[in-house]
Nucleic acid binder design. Structure first.
Lengths: 189, 189
DNA sequence: TATGACATGTAATCTGTTACATGATTAG
DNA sequence: CTAATCATGTAACAGATTACATGTCATA
């Protein structure tokens, strides 16, 4: 009955388990794709899977099929699906931005298959709002402290601002993409 | 005699301790500036300081001055300074990029005061090389998998590419800044 | 004198890392 | 047959989070 918070890795696993997979499959995803930011070590993944299973979010079934190496395939439960949706659709906060784009982008990447493209647009809009405020705040912070900083520190700060500005422009690009798609599909609706 | 690897927080503390500070001062930096990505909790910072002290990288002295609240001010030792320099000046690897810009930018921000502007330029050049290769690799990865992805996943991937491209452009901006400064100071040398 | 900010710390718990261990199956 | 790969795990440890504990000093 403990209300444990699910760490980022847990949500990454939930998202990937939209397609039923074994622990080994998931490790391969982490070691071979852009998701290598997450550890592919068995000491991280197998315990994480067991925690998710104990929380009732996924269920593992040992395959007794053809090849017959013991291989446990995990699937989302309905509780797991709703937890995943909740994580994806909650509004983007300032804190989310401070902790990094990584997790926000993971949420967005899973959004379409898990919740649908309407939710994807909403997530983008929420992100846009948060980013606009954040970029403005960063500009202000720079004004206040730039005189007392060495050049490298000021440049590093500018890098952060540029990065977030670029991120903001991407949200516009992404929103435009969805708008176009919407027109293609549903002008007459 | 343990050769423990210093975690990111440890280096952040070493960099900040170029200016002698108490644990409380450091916590305030983490809670109030752009460095709020690091935890400002006492349970993280005081133990980290003690580890650095045990490793001989910093030394704390209890102030017996005027105000007389007990307040321990930490300073870098010569060993700490050289460890900080080593961290800052080592070449930027692919792995550094995968784990995030954060730590690279921290190294750069501390670079000028800790090692000097020549080292800052070298760090930027190393970063530029690594980024060019990384962006190229990301483009290739996108080509290989984009057909099998939902729109949101593809857009998320594009976001990563754009971010790194933006980062690359920033390195050019930063290098140009140093070039200009170099001319102002040393044309006749 | 009581409240709140200053300043430092500890203990329980959780998660992740590193490194090792185990066994089944397939390729050479 | 033996080496590599598939597939799963465990144990020891390090580090972070959370929540609590302690005491000092200023001020209202």
């Amino acid at each position: 009955m403990k209300r444990q918070k699910i760490p980022s890795l847990g949500y990454a696993l939930l998202g990937l388990l939209q397609k039923p997979s074994s622990g080994y499959d998931l490790r391969k995803v982490f070691s071979s794709t852009t998701m290598r930011t997450y550890s592919d070590s068995p000491g991280a993944i197998y315990p994480a899977l067991r925690r998710l299973e104990q929380a009732g979010l996924i269920r593992g079934v040992i395959e007794e099929g053809s090849g017959l190496r013991r291989r446990q395939v995990f699937r989302l439960t309905s509780k797991g699906i709703s937890e995943l949706k909740k994580w994806i659709t909650r509004p983007v906060t300032r804190e989310d931005l401070v902790w990094g784009q990584q997790e926000i982008m993971l949420r967005f990447a899973f959004c379409e298959t898990a919740v649908g493209s309407t939710a994807a647009v909403e997530l983008l809009q929420s992100l846009e709002t948060a980013l606009q405020a954040y970029v403005a705040a960063l500009h202000e912070e720079l004004q206040q402290i730039k005189s007392a900083m060495p050049a490298s520190a000021r440049l590093a700060f500018e890098c952060g601002i540029r990065g977030n500005q670029c991120f903001l422009e991407w949200t516009h690009h992404a929103l435009a993409t969805y708008e176009k798609e919407g027109k293609r599909k549903g002008v007459t609706s």
